[in-house]
Write a protein that binds this DNA or RNA. Sequence first.
DNA 1: ATGAAAGCGCTAACAG
DNA 2: CTGTTAGCGCTTTCAT
Lengths: 355, 355
Amino acid sequence: MNRTYQKPSLNEPSRPKRFRRGSGRATLADVAKVAGVSAQTVSRVLNNPSAVPTATLEHVRDAIAQVRYVPNRLAGGLASGRSKLVAALVPAIASPVFLETLEALTQALATQGYQLMLGESGYDDADEVQLFENLISRGPDGIVLTRVVQSELARQRLASSGIPVVETWDLTDNPVDMLIGFSHEQVGACVADIMIKRGVKYPAMISGNDPRARRRRIGYAKRLVEKGCLRTEEDLQVAEVPAPAPMGYGRRAFRELLARQVPIDGLFCSTDMLALGALIEAQHRKIIVPDQLAVVGFGDLVIAADTSPALTTVRINGQKLGTLAAELIMRRASGNLVPDKIHDIGFEVVMRESA
Amino acid sequence: MNRTYQKPSLNEPSRPKRFRRGSGRATLADVAKVAGVSAQTVSRVLNNPSAVPTATLEHVRDAIAQVRYVPNRLAGGLASGRSKLVAALVPAIASPVFLETLEALTQALATQGYQLMLGESGYDDADEVQLFENLISRGPDGIVLTRVVQSELARQRLASSGIPVVETWDLTDNPVDMLIGFSHEQVGACVADIMIKRGVKYPAMISGNDPRARRRRIGYAKRLVEKGCLRTEEDLQVAEVPAPAPMGYGRRAFRELLARQVPIDGLFCSTDMLALGALIEAQHRKIIVPDQLAVVGFGDLVIAADTSPALTTVRINGQKLGTLAAELIMRRASGNLVPDKIHDIGFEVVMRESA
DNA sequence: ATGAAAGCGCTAACAG
DNA sequence: CTGTTAGCGCTTTCAT
């Protein structure tokens, strides 16, 4: 009998009075009927095959193939409390900065059958609670934020949901739960050191208007003052642009900086995209990088190695970050506690030609 | 009585013998108890408020706030057959090409309370069926593919799942369900026309190795032959690079092309990233664009307007595509049929400086 | 090693 | 307008 299995017609006279039709797809019970076992055994074949003898295993798997059974994980998740869904929230999907993280996260999750839900938070903090509750209502086994939670209310709601949370791309002393990040102030300070080592006299910065870019700027300005390159932090020439900033903003911001008629020989851009824009504008104006102007970016996007001149920048290991986030959550989901809740993954200065 | 509502303790002596503890979070029933109504009424307040008088509405909403009720959509989805989840599959998350589409899709879905699940398919077609079943098992209300389904088996499985499917970024005569795309061959032909109009004598191409880039190439070569610019399609100078191609590949591919010692005065790059790479390499080698070399890209990434010279390219309205995909799926989910299953959204040539 | 029963939290269907 | 009942398809718990 090789015919395709047919679910019993819904119009059979024996159906109960109060009736709801299901999805029409094969269910565990259908497989069980065909295989001549109970639904429970089929479930075991799927979720814990080692508890089932080989003979039964094959038998049931044949039945699964025959009825083209596709599990319903909504039902499974409801029953077990484990949805195998992980939610991630990024400020802007179109921003290339988090792509590497997101990709690593997705891939690491996929290896264990987890699926990513993606949400967009925006750069402002409007309605954090609403945003989080939307995710929580989906019953994810974990939530990854590419930010630190802002409001106290949101913190409480997240914490009381009992769902593992990983805040990333930033450092804070009291994370909601777990944290993977690095110090933006230190990044700024490091870039200042590069400038100073190059003998830069007139430092400037093009900065996105998001909180983290601002903290890189503060670290940068502070160190410049410490080293005597600047009198006060306010003396730093800064052009601020709205995040997420496309390359064109970098060109324009650099023009604006030049228009101030103040000498500039060192430029820190809060993202590589902005740096690329500045580089292009410099080339356009025949300003020689790095001889006349040192340029440093942030992020080490794939483009950074191939600009002309190649961009000196700060690399965040987004892949490591994403993979680690996935690991922490999956470890938690499997019932294990995570020993280290705070991970400072640091950053790396990539010296190339532009500074 | 303003105390926070407490769920009855799980250790009460009256609990049934066979016992499963839930998530510990408040449920509809808890809200109902506090509000002094039935669970059904609470459900109506949430999903169909117009069917409930204002007084009850407020009453229930107070109770919801009091117990900090967050709905469980896994349960809701299971019961109603509508999960308010939409799955999207992109070849590579790190590829900027689909970002605009993805962002528009996410945002359009979010307006109606839908949530995106993101998956990565890769550029090869390994295990399409597996990939799709993974998504299907999550019970999404729709599936958006940034590709056309390849294998017949995968087509059947998708179709028989009954889930609305939107294939995008391509055109085909027999879509699984709905389709939003444009003709890659026509894009290639259009670019050829630009080249010819510019008087290009020695056309070349840098192309990703994915099927759609190849079809753009075919359209390009065909038209060049038709117009007598090339003797045969094989005469086109092509450098092929692996997709998804970062900018650096464009630089290298262009070098490779130049190393062939064949004259080149027109270059079509299968993506803007590749074009940017070629542009940078040209600048590096003092090849004047567009005077000595016309360059045309594809995609109209945000960078394209701000390269130097500004990049002439082909624009796909990713935002429109994403929004439309969301609309089609949501219309279907609300029970309405979609009149037009195939949407050719075309493309737009954006003339800038590079050609 | 396998099965039966109970229930996860919600909504559809029906009845009032 | 509101409540009761019966599932959605699965896993947990317990019994064999």
